[in-house]
Design a protein around this nucleic acid. Structure first.
Length: 181
DNA sequence: GGAACGATCTGC
DNA sequence: CAGATCGTTCCC
């Protein structure tokens, strides 16, 4: 699964008021034949980026309040993407704290990391490998040999499919969090 | 044209 | 544990 290989990669963003980077420690996979996926009902205006080429950024608005960031992983027309659920901050921690607010967790959730990295709906469709304001970087850190695999979070369909991956040594990502029923 | 429903987060 | 908050989708 591509979602497991994203663990350990660096997420970088330079959205204007400061450069931020961090290591991806939790991901979830979504495919077109998955009832919980935005691409399940076919191509629409919102999910068009998901059906595009791999390596681009799919951003959507969640609960009318938060934005969530995905990496498109499938070939053209596939409609597959990986949701970035948690990141361990590395560079630009001060910027993240300013964006998130003092005393709040920085990037241990999909909505939180978007705010910390300054990723918004306007970044939808960005090429993550093209030197743009948001990108993915491989610094040679391999994905964990023993990732924690479990059911995805916050969805109501296909709840039992174990398509969530987490770096076991991460202190940032919440551990042992039960999924909803 | 309208209504229902979220791939979440926060504060009570 | 419930409210916030609004775009997307689906049904009439």
């Amino acid at each position: 699964m591509v979602a497991a290989e994203l663990l350990g990669k660096l997420l970088i963003a330079d959205t204007g008021d400061g450069r931020t980077s961090g290591r991806i420690v939790e991901t979830e996979a979504y495919t077109a034949d998955d009832p919980a996926s935005h691409s399940f009902r076919g191509l629409t205006a919102r999910n068009a980026v998901m059906f595009g080429t791999a390596g681009r950024l799919y951003v959507y608005l969640s609960y009318g309040v938060h934005t969530c960031a995905n990496v498109v992983t499938g070939a053209e027309g596939d409609g597959a993407a990986v949701l970035i659920r948690a990141v361990e901050p590395i560079d630009g921690v001060a910027v993240m704290r300013a964006r998130r607010g003092a005393g709040r967790p920085l990037a241990d959730g999909p909505g939180k990391l978007c705010q910390a990295f300054g990723i918004g709906l306007g970044d939808n469709g960005l090429d993550l490998c093209g030197g743009g304001p948001v990108g993915l970087l491989d610094d040679g850190t391999p994905p964990p040999r023993d990732p924690i695999v479990g059911p995805r979070i916050g969805i109501s369909k296909a709840v039992d499919v174990p398509w969530r991956w987490r770096t076991p040594t991460s202190a940032t990502a919440p551990r042992g969090r039960p999924h909803r029923s």
